[in-house]
Amino acid sequence: MAKKTHGKNLGKKGLMAALARHVVLEKSQSQLAKKEALQKEHSAQKQQSMKGGGKVNKNKKKQQLNLQKSGYIPFKKGDRVLLVGEGDFSFAKSIIAQQYIEPENLIATSYDSYDELVAKYPNVEDTVKSLIESGVKVIHEVDALNMVASLKLTPTPKSKKAKVELFADHANLDYIMFNFPHTGRGMKDVDRNIRDHQQLVLGYFKSCNQVFDIVNNQIKDDFAGYSASDDSTNVGKVILSLFDGEPYSSWGVKILGRSEGFRVDRSAKFDWPSYPEYHHRRTNSTRDTTKPAAERDARIYIFEKFDKKEADEKERRRRNDEDSDDN
C-alpha cells in the first residue's frame, strides 16, 4: 500500500508539483486566516456585549442555527441548472421532490448511456421516467470534460449566428453542478490518484467555460437571430461538491479553478438531510462507498468568474508595493 503524502507530493515536477505546493501553502494561509477571524469575532462580541448588544448577538446566533437547520441549497428555485455526472439521478430526484428548483429549469445528465445505467443502478428506470414526466430534461452520454460536443452545442456552419439553446425559452444557464467527481478508477497509488483527479476537475472547469461562452454570451437581434455579446452578467457559476479530508484536499480545487478564471464565491457544508432521496454511489458499481456517504463531511463550493489578468496585475502591484516598503 502506497504511503499517503497528505498533500506534499514531494519529488514531482511540473504543474502537479506546483499545485501540491500551493495546496500546502493554501492550508497554512487558511489556518492563519481562521485564527485571525476567530480573534476578531471574539473581540467584536466582547465589545458588543459591553455596549449592551447581547440581544443582537442572541438574534444573530438564532439566525445561524436556523440556517444550519434548514441546510444550504446552492441555487434558487428560479435558477437554470445543468447537472453532470448524475449516476443514478437520485440527486436530481431529490431537488425536484424537495421543490428546490422548477423541473423545467433543470437539465440532468449522466456519463453512462441509458442501457449502462439500467444495468448498473436498480430502479433508475423509474427515476428517469419520473423526472421526464415532471418536466426535467434528461440527457445521457454527457462527458463533463467535453460538454459542448456531448450536448451538441456547436453551431452548424449555416447557423453560426443562431443561439445554441439548452432551454426552450432561450434562457441563460445559471449553474453547472458536479457532485463528488470521480474518475471511476480505483488506484492504490495516492500520487497518481491525486494527479488523475486534478486533471478531471481542471477539465471540468475548462468545459464549463466553453458551455457558458456558447450558451450565455449571446443576445437576440432584430432579425430573430442571435449575435455574440460581452455582457458579463450572462456568466454562470460552477458548483463542485467534495468530501472533506484527503485525498480530496490535495486536489487543490481552488487553484485549479483559478487557473481557468474561477474563484470561490462561497462555500458551505453539504447538508445530507436536505437531500433525503440522494444516494451517493461508487462510480463503477452499485455499492456505497467504504463509509456511508451521509456519515462523511463534505462541502459545496460555488465558483464565480473573475478577470484573472486584472487580479494577477493587482497582486503584482501589491507585492511591488510591499517590496518598496521593505526597502
Rank of each mutant, 00 (worst) to 15 (best):
K3N: 08
K3R: 10
H6L: 14
G11H: 07
K13E: 13
M16E: 12
A20D: 14
H22M: 10
V23Y: 02
V24M: 11
E26N: 08
K34A: 11
K35R: 14
K35G: 06
E41T: 07
Q45E: 15
S49R: 14
G54V: 05
N57T: 05
Q63W: 07
Q64G: 03
S70N: 15
Y72I: 02
G78K: 14
G78R: 11
D79K: 00
V81C: 04
V84W: 04
E86C: 11
D88N: 15
F89K: 03
Q99C: 11
I101G: 00
E102M: 06
N105P: 05
T109R: 05
D115K: 11
L117N: 12
L117W: 01
A119H: 11
A119N: 15
P122N: 10
E125A: 09
V128K: 02
V128Y: 01
S130I: 03
E133S: 13
V136M: 08
V136P: 03
K137V: 08
K137A: 04
D143Y: 01
L145M: 11
V148Y: 01
T154I: 10
T154R: 13
K158F: 15
K161V: 06
K163N: 05
F167N: 01
D169H: 03
N172G: 12
N172Y: 05
D174A: 06
Y175P: 00
P181G: 04
H182Q: 12
T183K: 03
D189F: 04
V190H: 09
R192C: 01
Q198N: 12
Q199H: 06
K206C: 02
K206Q: 12
N209G: 08
I214S: 02
I214V: 15
N217M: 10
D222I: 07
F223L: 11
G225Q: 14
D230K: 09
G236C: 04
G236M: 09
F243H: 05
D244R: 10
D244K: 09
D244S: 14
G245E: 10
P247S: 09
S259L: 13
R263E: 11
F270P: 00
D271H: 14
P273Q: 12
S274Y: 02
Y275H: 08
Y278T: 00
T283K: 11
N284T: 02
R287H: 14
P292F: 06
P292S: 08
R296A: 06
A298I: 02
I300E: 00
I302D: 00
F306L: 07
F306N: 04
K314W: 02
R317L: 15
R318P: 01
R318V: 04
R318G: 02
R319A: 09
E322Y: 09
E322D: 13
S324E: 15
D325V: 04
D326N: 14
N327Q: 06
